[in-house]
Design a binder for these strands. Structure first.
Length: 731
RNA sequence: GCUGCUGUAGCUCAGUGGUAGAGCACUUCCUUGGUAAGGAAGAGGUCAUGGGUUCAAGUCCCAUCAGCAGCUCCA
């Protein structure tokens, strides 16, 4: 007999051949029908899995999973992936299966198949899946040893599975399979009892994917799907996807006129329209003020730097592929650049091409007399590199650090000047792959709220503490309160890191100490540090639960070394400072893009590009409206008047659609009493108030940077009442 | 960069080889009103670009460019 402990603590006895399903049957036939899978401790298993294998002398902790348990949905989706794979194998010949896991809200399966699938195939696939589900055949688990497994997969011509058994699963003695009708798949499980449990499913999309994530490897076709226990749940999900699309910063950015990416300017090049620029400049002013208070000093640097600067920093040619190509002042610059790269390439430079290069150099008027074909590759390269150093080459700057390092170097530094905190809203350019570009979230020209702190090793802890405090303050001022920090530390086994062992230990301990005392939710990640120093990244959760990586703080032992940065210590000897890179927003583009989605375009009063729209009732009230506009402007508000000959209903509707926080409706009554009939975009009418009262009320909302969400967050439980979140920040 | 999809008016989109369409926005006129759309008229197009097939191409084919989804990448 097996002793089984149910979630309520009761212990029941069952025969040795008991399964979760048989336990459920004992409790009731309705429950047995509802069981999808079971949980033994933390392990999710099939409902048909014999429980005997879990017996270890103590009662087996068993929890039956039904449609109500979120874990069950995962099981359902994994089984749906099998059903989809089965359908696709029936429809198309020579399908080789890769992996088919579940993901948030659905599943996918990767296939290697000769036929290119597209959206027109979805209906066919869905119809075939429906047939399989109709039959409600069971999922049957069985195990084989390694040899038998490989043999079985070979027989089924599943070459990718064979490869996976031989590589990824090399340490497994025996392997699990599931059979469902004619379909057999290598799979750890668990699965639903039978395919009939899938009540709603949909093939969503198709995309390319790489075998085991290797971009140089085999390209597979990935088919995405979703599955649910009821059509109603699926409908709700599909509607939510639509809702999320409406929140897309690209859609809102266009509708509200925040920014534009024009293909004539170039992909990934963001044009800030007046309203978007307004938001950005408000954020910049806010941060600038906070930084000045905290002892930062503003600096400016140009958008170009000599290539040699980045050779010193180590960013060139190492990151060349993600940088815009160098600018050459001399006509021959690009020629010599290509020439060197071909000389140094694995294939080498064929004689005929070398002759052509030499001739071209002559044509361009930059003949290099010292270059001799009989010299070694190293010698010829050196000759060309000497030529390069004598001719200017520039890079549009991919980062600000080298410039700031030069500012540090501009004069001799004493320990008394440290920490030296230099900040700049620095625009940098990165040649991101075309497929990576995404609205404002991933662009090729971006402005970092960058600062570099030069300090002594002993000052690292306090500077890090201050930086963390600043970042928290900044995030909370826009209502982002749900975040965690990833502390990236060294891999103790690796030796790829620069900087002394002692400094690393001190720095890592200091960062950890600061995070611990800050009470922040943080996780340490060993081996995630950059080679030049440990770092802390802020992972922020927005109001619909998505995670963003925004602010970052990074210690750097590398650049001070490479740039030979020094200060004179109290001992009158030279010392090397530590450099801290930090950016609370990350980049203005990404931050504003993220905020747009976070607020669904309804920016809080302190950031709203337009704060108040004055809506005169008719042309008779235009004079009073214009008078009010001046009062609002004088009080520092961003305000406009709607002077159109439209009805006030239309003016209000347009202001609401534009998500303007307040509307001031004025007619003869208000003009008479010098008042405003105030309307709030969230609450609606607030009643008629004297002008002075409105001005001070709105000023307070701005000064406190109060956050009131105008567009509700979407939740998975639509029955939940609407909640208006409020948050305020005080100085 | 890779795979798939898309590109028609400022925006959202119809348009199945035979004369280029709708709604919203815009302009003008009428309307002068009390908290989410008053009415009428008008203007607006090299159908992404280049080539091809055809008597005839927005529509079919090829290339290029750009966008979207996913993959790979992000100092």
């Amino acid at each position: 007999m097996l002793e089984i402990q149910l979630p309520d603590g009761t212990i029941v006895s069952h025969p040795d051949d008991a399964t979760p399903l048989s336990v459920a049957e004992k409790i009731g036939s309705r429950l047995a029908k509802a069981v999808i899978a079971a949980k033994i401790g933390d392990l999710i298993v099939d409902a048909t899995r014999p429980l005997k294998s879990f017996a270890n002398g103590t009662p087996i902790p068993l929890r039956l999973l039904t449609e109500k348990d979120p874990e069950a949905l995962d099981v359902l989706r994994h089984s749906s992936a099998h059903v989809m794979a089965r359908a696709i194998m029936r429809l198309y010949p020579n399908v080789s299966l890769a992996f088919g896991p579940t993901i948030t809200n659905g599943f996918y399966y990767d296939f290697d198949l000769p036929q290119k699938l597209n959206e027109d195939d979805f209906a066919k696939i869905e119809a075939e899946m429906a047939k399989i589900i109709e039959l409600a055949e069971p999922f049957e688990q069985f195990s084989l040893d390694r040899t038998q497994s490989v043999e079985l997969c070979r027989d089924m011509k599943q070459t990718l599975k064979v490869e996976h058994i031989e590589t990824g699963l090399a340490s497994h003695e025996s392997l699990g399979f599931y059979r469902q009708g004619e379909f057999v798949d290598l799979c750890r499980g668990p699965h639903i009892p039978d395919a009939g449990r899938i009540k709603a499913f949909k093939v969503m999309s198709i995309a390319g994917a790489y075998w085991k994530g290797d971009a140089d490897g085999l390209q597979l076709q990935r088919v995405y799907g979703t599955a649910w226990f009821s059509p109603k749940d699926m409908q709700a999900h599909l509607e939510q996807v639509e809702e999320a699309k409406k929140r897309d910063h690209r859609v809102i950015g266009k509708r509200l006129g925040l920014f534009q990416i024009s293909s004539e300017v170039g992909p990934g090049m963001c044009l800030w329209l007046p309203k978007g620029a307004r938001i950005r400049s408000l954020l910049e002013d806010f941060l600038r003020k906070e930084m000045l208070k905290r002892g930062y000093e503003p600096v400016y640097s140009p958008h170009l730097g000599r290539v040699e600067l980045y050779e010193t920093s180590g960013h060139f040619p190492y990151y060349r592929d993600s940088q815009f190509p160098p600018l050459f002042v001399n006509d021959g610059g690009a020629l010599v650049d290509g020439w060197i790269r071909r000389l140094e390439s694995k294939e080498g430079l064929p004689v005929a091409h070398e002759q052509a290069f030499m001739q071209a150099a002559e044509v361009l008027g930059c003949e290099i007399k010292e270059y001799k074909v009989e010299q070694s590759v190293a010698e010829r390269t050196a000759v060309l590199q000497t030529w390069q150093r004598l001719h200017e080459r520039y890079l549009v700057k991919p980062m600000n650090c080298p410039h700031h390092a030069q500012i540090f170097k501009a004069m001799p530094r004493s320990y008394k000047q440290l920490p030296l905190r230099l900040f700049e809203f620095g625009t940098v350019y990165r040649f991101e792959q075309t497929g990576e570009l995404n609205g404002m979230l991933r662009v090729r020209g971006l402005t970092q709220d960058d600062a570099h702190i030069f300090c002594t090793q002993d000052q690292v802890e306090q500077e890090f503490r201050n930086t963390i405090e600043l970042t928290r303050m900044v995030l909370e001022s826009v209502g982002l309160k749900d975040y965690r920090v990833q502390l990236s530390l060294r891999d103790p086994k690796s030796d790829k890191y620069v900087g002394s062992e002692e400094n690393w230990q001190k720095a890592e301990a200091a960062l950890r100490r600061v995070l611990e005392e800050s009470g922040l939710n943080f996780q340490a990640a060993e081996g995630e540090a950059a080679f030049y120093g440990p770092k802390a990244d802020f992972m922020v959760r927005d109001c619909i639960g998505r995670q963003w990586q925004l602010g970052t703080v990074q210690l750097d032992y590398n650049l001070p070394e490479r740039f030979q940065l020094e200060y004179i210590g109290s001992d009158n000897k030279t010392h090397r400072p530590v450099m801290i890179h930090r950016a609370p927003f990350g980049s203005m583009e990404r931050f504003v893009g993220m905020l747009t989605e976070h607020f669904a375009g309804a920016f809080p009063m302190w950031l709203a590009p337009e704060q108040v729209r004055i809506c005169p009732l008719s042309e008779k009230s235009n004079d009073y409206a214009l008078e009010l506009e001046k009062q609002f402007l004088d009080a520092g508000f961003r305000v406009t008047v709607d002077l159109r000959g439209a009805k006030v209903q239309a003016k209000i509707r347009d202001a609401q659609v534009e998500l303007i926080p307040y509307m001031a409706v004025v007619g003869p009554r208000e003009a008479e009493t010098r008042s405003i009939a105030l309307r709030d975009r969230i609450e609606g009418e607030l009643g008629t108030k004297p002008v002075a009262e409105v001005l001070s009320m709105l000023a307070e909302e701005v000064n406190q940077r109060r956050i009131r969400f105008a567009v509700q967050k979407e939740t998975n439980e639509p029955e939940q009442p609407k909640v208006t979140e409020t948050a305020s920040h005080e100085y």
